[in-house]
Amino acid sequence: MNIAPQRVVTLHYLLQDARGNVLDDSRSRDTPLEYLHGHDNIVAGLERALDGQPEDAVLDVTLTPHEAYGERDEARVQQVGRDAFPSDRLAPGMRFQTQGDAGPEIVTIVAIDGDRVTVDTNHPLAGETLSYRLDVLEVRDATRAELAKGHPLPPDTDHSQVEDRKLI
């Protein structure tokens, strides 16, 4: 079966930056990635590269910043009050998830000066050229419940019960 919209794809990946530094490796966790193709579950450039690929495909894909997490935008580095954070224990490099204008976003603390905290709301990989090594393990049709949720459901989910509740 080939990768196409409305199908669940299971794959292992190795992610590296342009310098060859390993940023993430699903095999190191022995946990493959599972996503619903065509539902914006992964970076758009990666989804385009995978579209139409068969089960057992092995791909090397390099994405420009535009195809991955976008270019860095220095206007997204700003100062906020220390009281904007849920904890008093703050340090440069700490990351928090917050609700931005376009949905959830990661905020990275850049510096702390008294009650002022400099944060960067760019995605941590913004501006990076990224290389992926992809091993497609499985491609299957999504269940109605997965299509309704917009993402794969855990293996132990009783899809019929989820679907029945959704239909009521």
Rank of each mutant, 00 (worst) to 15 (best):
E67Q: 13
L125P: 01
L15P: 00
S28R: 15
T121C: 04
P155F: 06
A91C: 08
L23I: 12
T108H: 01
G20T: 05
K149C: 11
R27F: 08
A68I: 01
T121M: 06
H151N: 03
G45A: 03
Q6G: 04
R82T: 05
P5W: 05
Y69A: 09
L63I: 01
L46K: 05
A142R: 06
Y69C: 09
A75M: 07
V61C: 04
R29C: 10
V162H: 04
F85M: 01
P155T: 11
L23P: 00
G103T: 01
H151T: 11
S26Y: 04
D101Q: 12
R76H: 07
V61G: 01
I112F: 04
L14H: 03
D24A: 10
Q99W: 02
D73N: 12
T64M: 14
E71R: 07
P104I: 01
R116G: 07
D164W: 15
V80C: 05
V22L: 06
P104L: 11
S26I: 11
D120G: 02
L50K: 13
R116T: 13
E128T: 05
D17Y: 02
N41E: 12
A44K: 06
R95H: 06
V43H: 12
H123N: 09
P124A: 07
D83Y: 07
V162Y: 03
A84C: 10
V107C: 09
G100N: 01
T157M: 09
Q79G: 12
L36A: 08
I42F: 13
A75C: 05
E47W: 06
V58E: 14
E71S: 00
E71T: 01
L63W: 05
V77N: 00
R89A: 12
H12P: 06
T121H: 09
D158Q: 13
D17H: 00
Q161C: 06
D83C: 01
L59R: 11
A111Q: 09
V22E: 10
I112M: 10
R29W: 03
D115C: 13
T31H: 14
R133D: 10
I109N: 04
D73S: 04
R116S: 15
S26A: 11
Q16A: 08
G150S: 08
L11N: 02
R48K: 12
G70S: 05
I112H: 13
P124H: 13
T31R: 14
A18P: 01
E163Y: 12
G100K: 00
K149L: 15
H37C: 14
G114L: 09
L23W: 02
